[in-house]
Amino acid sequence: MNVKIHRLSENARTPTYGSEVAAAFDLYAAADVIVAPGETAKIPLGFAVEIPDGYEMQIRPRSGITLKTKLRVANAPGTIDADYRGEVAVIFDNIAPESEFDDAYPCRLDGWVDSAYKGESCAYHTYNIYVGDRIAQAVILPVPRVSFEEVSAASELSDTTRGDGGFGSSGV
């Protein structure tokens, strides 16, 4: 599949696959952004994209960032619709609790501390995202169009073993 991409910033990087068989392609930050505990931040990617009709681009977290930091892709998976032509961005939530020492030792995504104190830990969970950092991944998937048929009674819906059992009803 050929996907057109238009750079909107000199800092934009074309998405890349990490290996020949990787399912998702990596997305790179096009701006320096600080994400303090308790904050939500939009990290621009610096490009617009033309997703083919009938498809969407899903933005997903990178597992290493989720495992090693308090940053979470806020709307994962985030959807970029086929008719959107604006700048693509990733929204991050920093789920670390707010503290009076939030910016004492801001950390890079790779765990290095952005200060003269290289021996300090990243205990305060303020993250500096820099241009070129791999911040998320994405896939392009087909999206079927559906039609909705309203029925007048629940009995017109097919029966299942689960029925109307909600959250946790099928086990934990």
Rank of each mutant, 00 (worst) to 15 (best):
E100K: 15
K4R: 10
L157M: 15
I43D: 07
A89D: 15
I5R: 07
S115R: 05
V49G: 07
P142L: 06
I59C: 11
G18H: 06
V113Y: 01
D164Q: 12
E120S: 11
N128A: 09
I129T: 00
E120I: 00
G86M: 00
K70V: 01
D93H: 11
R60D: 04
G18E: 13
C107T: 04
S155P: 00
S19T: 14
S19V: 04
P52Y: 00
T16Q: 14
I65M: 11
R13M: 13
F167S: 11
Y130R: 12
E10I: 03
A82T: 08
A154W: 12
A153W: 02
A41W: 01
G78E: 13
E39H: 06
L157A: 15
T160I: 07
D81V: 01
N128S: 10
T69I: 03
R72N: 01
Y28T: 05
S99T: 15
C107N: 04
E150H: 09
R13I: 04
S170R: 07
E20C: 03
V146M: 14
R13L: 14
D133P: 04
I129C: 02
V113A: 07
Y28I: 02
Y127W: 04
D159Y: 07
A136V: 10
A116Y: 06
I95K: 06
Y127N: 06
H6V: 08
A36V: 02
S121C: 01
L67T: 11
N75Q: 08
G168I: 00
V131L: 01
G132T: 04
D159L: 05
